[in-house]
Design a protein around this nucleic acid. Structure first.
Length: 845
RNA sequence: GCGCGAGUGGCGGAACUGGCAGACGCGCAGGAUUUAGGUUCCUGUGUCCUCGGGACGUGCGGGUUCGAAUCCCGCCUCGCGCACCA
């Protein structure tokens, strides 16, 4: 009987399910008696396209860890669920004439089926779905907590309106004036929207990064996103008026060098202070800036444009009159929307001053070139700075700030790049806000005991003709509510963004069926924090920052006991695939292409194609579907290949031939145990003790040790190659002591659980191998007694010595010098001999 | 432009803390088994040469060291992130 994954894999998946083999322990006694491990995948959005091979990469990694931890005696929480709200389902609903809930359910069923085929050890009893009212009831509940704390507010804000989507987007979702997901253009609009005061947590979100075991790159991205900078806010008077404006600067030490000021085109003061002579030019400029896209304001605009307002400001430190300009390189959305310009010590100001003939005054000495040529942005000693002349610039920053504070002209200020979070969307398929607007204009939260506010059933999910969100189409019975005091109110018709549900799902997993609370304090104490969180780096800022923010709010409310939700984060790399494109840009599926003499052609034709590695996508014809891989080679081979391809964190190309390699490995494992002719146990299996095959026994112990170390270090590819080394040795061995094979199967089990269960059963193992313990390795058996010591002459290998481990330096040196193969390279006595015991001898003649 | 990361055989990749470069797998070549194909097993496979030996070799150029894929300096290429943040 040959290795036939299609026969054994469904069998074991059925048995695991029937016996609830991976049920999370919830008995308090058991929870208390063992250490816990919470290993979590970033749950997927169940798209209509189904799973591709990129999804299971991270899922396989976490499954191996979960299975290993169980074998090591941990209580393991390893759940899966669905980030089920979102725009694609709403669009599919419009397209297919079905309800988004129906589409979502269909997609979830498909995803679940596909994921289950891989034999992951999820506790499916804890499956959650963010679009289920039993779930989003608590998302609404948390929103009410945010509202009560003053962290959710309505504001008239300039928003990113995407006409193609008919909704607003958060700043983070927009790049170069386009929606990051679809590339649809985005424009600025003023709208009344729900905002979350994430900026109130900016400092804590920044500081607490230090204690996290996260990739440095992700922490750095979050730091940049928060963008904390310390400086001073300084008030400038407008000459000959009673008006003034504030600027923010990180370099108060350069204040004496300010030769002009710049206001953002949107700055409210612009219209007021502009002189009559300049009015036309300024108004034209402001109008142009308003119509410029972000792309034009940044990428294309290498020259610094701007217009003089005709007004002057008074520099508070020296009472000098300096011109006020308007320029779009100053952004209304950062700082105060106004700057003092110090062209001698800031590159942008320098470029602007040169372009418009404004004076450049040096106030910090120490630049490499004269400030008329190049801005000196580094530190130095103050010059031309009144009483501060001669002071080092870093000291002067504090001194000048203090001087301003004493005179009420300015103060120290911490500025963030982070903005408050735009939290409303004009969509149907999202969580309704638990908020009522009374007819007399009051905002009233829905009482907790009336949650959830369920989505009303609608037939159409488009905005109303007069531009209101889809929920405005709801029947009066849903839309209109009478309060206990008799007043009438209308429900909020915006919904929450997709991030809402994913901000706290990791908490719901600890107690997913609780109808009294989002989770019980006991369950939260037992399982939190998440010990290992695996997902794509694309969530480095958005999801991870939002979730951390909510978690900190919940921490302040005493609802969770840790400051941070995710102790260790790991980003898996993207999986790419080869695609084939001809001259005209047409793509061909890989199976239609072949290689001839180092060139790629469409099979059986002379059409030349270029082969390249690209992101998988339908349009490029290079999507690999896990179902096909499993049909051809089985789930165990699929799992193994996902991890064997290369380091988990690396971006790497999928090569289907590689699956055949790991499948061959599994077939070899099979033949160690099963005679392929008869289907009976292999005749090489003996009941002799492991020591009867001493070499194999050593190989086994080295393998246990290596696989453990590499698995815990998330270096799965090298763990697998070590198992291959063992199997190659076992294939060559004369006999196979049963105990050796059984122990090896326990090492293999987290990686290839189906074949491990089947062979474990055939070898008479007790119970499920999934519940077996991880084998201990004998350190003494892991180290060889003989080692190969390399003999080098001037760093080049000339001979190798087989010596007992621990042979002394003198002896090694003597052996090396005596070597026949070394002699020809020596002339007389060597000048120097370096000996590294158990490794090498290097002779310098 | 700034920040971060990476460049190793035909391909994916390995190499602990400066100590045998290329583990493991794919592909390829040869052989055995087989009626054949497939499967399986064995052998070989960095490049070059005057080939039972030797020289060269980890993006390029330099340096430190007895010894460098690994450390330092300069450059090139690719990927990711940010993009006038005052």
């Amino acid at each position: 009987m040959r290795y036939d994954p299609a026969a054994i894999e469904p069998k074991w998946q059925r048995i695991w399910e029937e016996r609830k083999a991976f049920r999370t322990p919830d008995d308090p006694e058991q929870l208390a008696s063992r250490p816990k491990f919470y290993v979590l995948d970033m749950f997927p959005y169940p798209s209509g396209a189904g799973l591709h091979v990129g999804h299971p990469e991270g899922y396989t990694a976490t499954d191996v860890i979960a299975r290993l931890k169980r074998m090591q005696g941990y209580n393991v929480l390893h759940p899966m669920g669905w980030d089920a709200f979102g725009l694609p389902a709403e669009r599919a609903a419009v397209r297919e004439g079905l309800h988004p809930a129906v589409i979502t359910r269909r997609n979830i069923d498909n995803f679940r089926k596909q994921i289950k085929r891989l034999g992951f050890s999820y506790d499916w009893d804890r499956e959650i779905d963010t679009s289920d009212p039993r779930y989003y009831r608590w998302t609404q509940w948390i929103f009410l907590k945010l509202y009560e704390k003053g962290l959710a507010y309505l504001a008239e804000v300039p928003v990113n309106w995407c006409p193609a989507l008919g909704t607003v987007l958060a700043n983070e979702e927009v790049k170069d004036g386009r929606y990051v997901e679809t590339g649809d253009p985005v424009e600025r609009r003023l709208m009344r929207q729900w905002m979350l005061r994430i900026t109130a947590y900016a400092d804590r979100l920044l500081e607490d990064l230090d204690e996290l075991d996260w990739p440095e790159g992700v922490k750095e991205m979050q730091r940049n996103w928060i963008g904390r900078s310390v400086g001073a806010e300084v008030r400038f008077r407008v000459a000959d008026t009673d008006r003034s404006f504030e600027i923010f600067t990180t370099r108060p030490d350069t204040l004496f060098g300010a030769t002009y000021c710049v206001l953002a085109p949107e700055h409210p003061l612009v219209a007021e202070i502009t002189s009559d002579e300049q009015r036309e030019a300024v108004e034209r400029y402001v109008e142009q800036a308003r119509h410029k896209s972000d792309l034009q304001r940044t990428d294309l605009a290498k020259d610094k444009t701007g217009v003089f307002t005709g007004a002057y400001a008074i520099n508070p430190v020296n009472e000098q009159k300096i011109p006020i300009w308007v320029a779009d390189y100053v952004l209304m959305s950062y700082g105060t929307g106004a700057i003092m310009a110090v062209p001698a010590h800031d590159e942008r100001d320098h470029a602007f001053a040169r372009a418009h003939g404004l004076p450049i005054v040096e106030v910090i000495s120490g630049g490499e070139r004269p400030v008329s040529e190049q801005a000196h942005t580094g530190e130095g000693t103050l010059v031309n700075s009144g009483p501060f002349t001669g002071m080092p610039s870093d000291k002067a920053r504090e001194a000048i700030t203090r001087w301003l504070e004493e005179r009420g002209l300015g103060r120290e200020k911490v500025q963030y790049r982070l903005r408050d979070w735009l939290f409303s969307r004009q969509r149907y398929w999202g969580e309704p806000f638990p908020i009522l607007h009374t007819d007399d204009g009051e905002v009233v939260p829905v009482p907790e005991d009336e949650l959830p506010v369920e989505l009303p059933p609608l037939d159409e999910f488009k905005p109303t003709p007069d531009g209101k969100p889809p929920l405005a189409r709801a029947p009066e019975s849903w839309l209109r509510v009478q309060l206990p005091d008799g007043r009438w109110a209308t429900r909020e018709t915006n919904t929450m963004p997709q991030w809402a549900g994913s901000c706290w799902y990791y908490l719901r997993f600890v107690d997913p069926h609780n109808d009294e609370a989002p989770w019980s304090p006991e369950a939260e104490r037992a399982w939190m924090p998440v010990d290992l969180y695996v997902g794509g780096v694309e969530h480095a800022v958005l999801h991870l920052l939002y979730a951390r923010f909510w978690h900190k709010v919940l921490y302040d409310l005493g609802l969770v006991h840790t400051k941070e939700p995710f102790r260790k984060l790991f980003n898996q790399g993207m999986i790419l695939a080869f695609s084939y494109r001809d001259e005209r840009g047409k793509y061909y599926p890989p199976e239609q292409c072949e290689e001839r003499d180092g060139q790629w052609y469409v099979r059986g034709t002379d059409i030349r194609v270029e082969r390249q590695i690209e992101k998988m996508s339908k349009s490029k014809g290079n999507v690999v579907n896990p179902d096909e891989v499993i049909d051809a080679h089985g789930a165990d081979a699929m799992r193994l290949y996902e991890l064997f391809m290369g380091p988990l964190e690396q971006t790497k190309p999928w090569q289907t031939e590689g699956v055949e390699g790991v499948r061959r490995f599994l077939a070899r494992v099979w033949r160690l145990v099963v005679d392929p002719e008869t289907g009976a146990l292999s005749s090489r299996i003996t009941d002799a003790p492991p020591a009867s095959e001493p070499e194999l026994e050593r190989a086994l112990h080295r393998t246990i040790k290596t696989v453990l170390e590499h698995t815990e270090g998330m270096r799965f590819n090298t763990a697998i190659s070590q198992m291959m080394v063992f199997v190659n040795e076992a294939t060559a061995a004369r006999s196979l002591p049963r105990e050796i094979v059984q122990t090896f199967l326990r090492v293999l089990a987290p990686y290839a659980p189906h074949i491990a269960e089947e062979l474990w059963e055939r070898l008479g193992g007790e119970g499920l191998i999934a519940h077996a313990s991880w084998p201990a390795h004998d350190e003494a058996l892991c180290t060889e007694q003989t080692v190969t010591v390399v003999v080098q002459v001037r760093g080049k290998v000339r001979d190798r010595l087989e010596v007992p481990r621990g042979t002394g330096r003198e002896q090694l040196e003597a052996l090396a010098l005596a070597s026949e193969r070394v002699q020809p390279y020596l002339e007389g006595s060597p000048r120097k001999v370096i000996v590294v015991p158990d490794r090498l001898v290097n002779i310098v003649p």
